[in-house]
């Protein structure tokens, strides 16, 4: 009985918070735009009974998905979002791993403080933190003022409104999501393993690559997913820090939804985005499971 309930709860969670919203979005993506409230047809009308349901389904089609293939804007935006998300995930890993490593190797009594310092920025609104980057990166911003004053540069660096600013914004915002899982993996690691490796003739570097890195792999994978998935659909950071040339699927979605008032096409864009994200995740998990079974 308890076992059944334990299995049921996660499935119920998935059903209510993932499957139901997805079906609603999918339904809208198959309908047509209309000048009405809400702005698409057909509407689900139960009062007509079976007839109503049948005519509802007969009016759904894949027209909007076909439309997405007729304009290369969508394709380019998906590719550009994937690229921005991949590069920022990599940069976040490069910045986050040493931080997590340092925290896990710090004396026991420091760790709670260090952990606190990583979490602390979350206490300030995300929006305000992105806005403050505008103050740092703009042409009259802190960074340029200091560099000019030091004489490192003589014309302000144009960072604001470029893709570089988007990368900085994403890496900064998502860094804790990378640091925390890696830290928790490293913290659990038994340090005597390193001693053993060194006793058996490993150099410090070799011990890191052969022991520490593989043992922190789960943390790295979790961190990369936590950064990559939200980064690909990011809207706030590119619209505040990016320039008009920054093409991301989040901005395209916004434009479909708000400027074109085309909820069906916007929903089709969202469905494709979900497929792009979910298929590699499922393949990856299946692979992991196989590896585990092979080991077991």
């Amino acid at each position: 009985m308890r076992r059944a309930a334990l299995i049921l709860i996660p499935y119920l969670w998935l059903l209510v918070f993932f499957l139901v919203p997805f079906v609603i979005v999918l339904k809208i993506s198959l309908s047509d735009v209309a000048l009405a409230r809400p702005p698409y047809t057909p509407q689900f009308d139960l009062s007509l009974g079976w007839e109503g349901i049948r005519s509802f389904f007969s009016e759904l089609d894949f027209e909007n998905f076909v439309f997405l293939t007729t304009d290369d804007l969508y394709w380019k935006a998906y590719v550009s979002s994937l690229k921005i998300a991949l590069v920022s995930t990599l940069l976040t890993l490069l910045a986050g791993y040493p931080i997590a490593y340092g925290m896990a190797r710090a004396p026991n009594e420091w760790r709670p403080t260090l952990l606190m310092l990583v979490i602390l920025p979350f206490w300030t609104s995300f929006l305000i933190r992105v806005y403050s980057w505008m103050g740092i990166l703009s042409n009259e911003g802190t960074l340029n003022t200091v560099l000019l004053w030091l004489g490192v540069i003589d014309t302000p660096l144009q960072i604001m409104n470029t893709n570089s600013a988007v990368y900085i914004g994403i890496v900064y915002t998502y860094l804790p999501f990378m640091v925390l899982p890696i830290y928790s993996a490293l913290e659990k690691m038994d340090e005597s393993l390193i001693e053993a490796a060194e006793d058996l003739g490993c150099s410090k570097l070799a011990a890191f690559w052969l022991v520490t890195w593989p043992l922190s792999r789960n943390g790295i994978i979790a961190g990369c997913f936590l950064v990559f998935i939200p980064a690909i659909g990011e809207f706030v950071i590119p619209s505040l820090l990016g320039g008009s040339g920054t093409l991301m699927i989040g901005k395209v979605l916004f434009e479909e939804f708000f400027s074109n008032r085309d909820w069906p096409v916007a929903s089709a864009v969202a469905v494709i985005l979900l497929l792009i994200l979910i298929i590699p995740i499922i393949l990856f998990q299946r692979n992991e499971q196989k590896a585990r079974e092979a080991e077991g």
């Binding site: 735009v33 000048l35 304009d71 290369d72 804007l73 380019k76 008009s244 040339g245 920054t246 093409l247 395209v252 434009e255 400027s259 074109n260 008032r261 085309d262």
Partner: peptide
């Protein structure tokens, strides 16, 4: 109209982003 709006938005995206 919705179809014309789409042309306008698309043109504007092209003007802003170059694509």
């Amino acid at each position: 109209e919705p179809k014309v709006q789409r042309t306008v938005t698309r043109l504007w995206t092209k003007i802003k982003s170059g694509t």
